[in-house]
Amino acid sequence: MLHIKCPHCGMRSQNEFSYGGDASVKRPDLNKEISDEEWDNFVYNRKSLRGKHLELWQHLSGCRQWIKVERDTATHEIFNTYKADEEIS
């Protein structure tokens, strides 16, 4: 079971969180004309990569904040966690 540092609450067990997928996906702006391909990439296509992955988790049974977690998908190592609006260098 992973041990995730919520940037708002501190170290918490994985079972307090729910997974939200790739955090690098950006929703296209409303009312913007975009191609089918762009939309498909947003809705369906994910990299499913091995290694370092920036992903979303929601601290569901805690502060209910969506956070970003930098995790290695192969080893589960967590390098860093960020608030939703935090700049990631």
Binding site: G20, R27, L56, Q58, L60, A84, D85
Partner: peptide, 13 residues
């Protein structure tokens, strides 16, 4: 609720 929180916190803060 999670759906609304997702859009408010991440997409349209």
């Amino acid at each position: 609720l999670s759906h609304l929180e997702y859009y408010l916190q991440l997409v349209w803060p």
